[in-house]
Structure formats: C-alpha cells, structure tokens
Write a protein that binds this DNA or RNA. Structure first.
Lengths: 120, 120
DNA sequence: GAAAGTGGTTTCCCCTAGGAAACTACCTTG
DNA sequence: CAAGGTAGTTTCCTAGGGGAAACCACTTTC
C-alpha cells in the first residue's frame, strides 16, 4: 500500500499552494519588485526616470517587465501629449495592494542581514 | 547636465532595495516556498514524505532546495537512528519567521484569483 | 533473492531569463 | 545638421534553472 500526501491533500492547501504560485509568478523576475517599489515611492515616472532610479536595469528588461506589470493591472502607462512625447508610469490602485507584501519582504530582508551580521 | 536618480538615491532606499533582493534570492526557485509552507503546516517530515506532499517535485530539486534552505538556517535536517534510517526535516524557529510573509503571499494570491474571476 | 522502502546523487539535456549593444524614430536645442 | 533627450525594439549570446531517468547504498519483508 502506497503512502499518499497527508498535509497538502486538502482543498484548502491546494488553493493556498496555487495562490503562492500565482503571486510568485506575477512577481517573478529580477526587477519587478524593484519597479513596483520605486513606483510606490515616487508616483508618476517616465521610462528614463525609471531606468535611472533602478540601478543596473537595461532598457530591454525595463520595457518587458513594465509590459508584464501593465498586463496584470499593477502599473498604468499613460502617453502624455507633450512636445517631446513622454510616458507616465504609475502604480495602480490594485498595484498598491502589494504594499504590505513588499513591506514584509523588506523588513524580513533587513532582519536577515542583521541576524547574519550579528551572529559573526 | 545629466539627470540622476532622485527617489532611490538615499541610503534608506538602497537598504530597502538590498533587502528585497536578499529575501527574493533566499526564496528564489520554483519550490522553496512550497517546501517551507509544507514544513510549517506539518512539522517533521521525511524526504519521501515531502516529495509526496509537494506535487511534481523531483528528488534532485527537492534535495538541492533543502540544502539551500538548511544553509540559510530556515530548515533543520536530523538523521534519526532508526532501523531503516530516516531523516527528519523541520522548520527552524528562524524559518518560522517567514510565516507572515508567506501568509501575505497567499492571501494576495487568493484575492488576485478572485479579482480576475470576478471581473469576467 | 526479488521487491519495495528509506534518502538521496549523477548525468544528460533543454529552455528561458537576462545582459550588451546596436538600432529606430521623433523632437528640440545649439 | 549634429547632439542629446524622449521611448523603446531587435539581435545575439550565455549562464543557469530545472526536468527525466538512471543509479547507489542499505534494510526489511515477502
């Protein structure tokens, strides 16, 4: 008789696992959280502004990640009717719901640094 | 005159960005959060137990991810002196500090599902 | 002594995430 | 008309993440 899954073999856990995968998939990649974090801090930034704010990102990646985030309604893209045409990227209301998550991520990371540093 | 970073060019933001990178790097990969989540739910599981609980993971990945997590002191590995030698994996006290983060991840993912489903 | 269970390691192979750099296109300023 | 700013796209390349399957070692059970 084969053993089977015990803990995760309940609808509740399946849903929770699914949810984790969903969230991670939406936030996947090296840059999405940095972009979101930056847009949460300083609302309304142009493409070049973002590239300047986020150290190390190339235009290809920035462009691609912004498209992903826009598709998921986390970021809005507005083309402005200015003389040299500019684009305004901003966090959406929905994107802002990620704030608590990003804060958890941040505080845990800071405490991790301290614990590693402190134990040496 | 070149423009420079405005928002992220403060020590506080540098540290926050760093922290996000740290956390994401520790939790990177397809399986780590599933492993941690499973171990938080059902403390003390054997290798095969874990593989049964986590749908789709192969032994290579499970082994590698567990080593990573052990290195970061999030998971403990104890070889038991039983007749067929068994190994007990468990969440450490430190690993348990990830609970709030994992919960945020989960609830956000669940609400995401609902919002996508509800808007159609 | 073959099967099945413990806990993994090793090999092979594929795909994609991501970087560098060049290029497009349009507008303004010197 | 060149330089520099806007906002990207395209191409080329490679390190690595991750899957499938075989393999190892050791023990108990049938």
């Amino acid at each position: 008789m084969k053993k089977k899954s015990v803990i995760n073999d309940t609808p509740v856990c399946q849903i929770r696992m699914q949810a984790i995968s969903d969230t991670m998939s939406i936030l996947s990649g090296k840059w999405k959280l940095h972009i979101l974090g930056t847009l949460i801090e300083g609302s309304k930034l142009g493409f070049m502004d973002l590239q300047r704010e986020i150290n190390g990102i190339g235009s290809k990646m920035l462009s691609k990640e912004l498209q992903d985030l826009e598709l998921n309604l986390l970021v809005s893209r507005t083309v402005m009717d200015t003389k040299p045409i500019t684009v305004e990227y901003a966090i959406t209301e929905y994107g802002a719901t990620l704030s608590p998550l990003i804060n958890e991520l941040t505080t845990w990371g800071i405490e991790y640094r301290q614990s590693v540093h402190g134990s040496k």
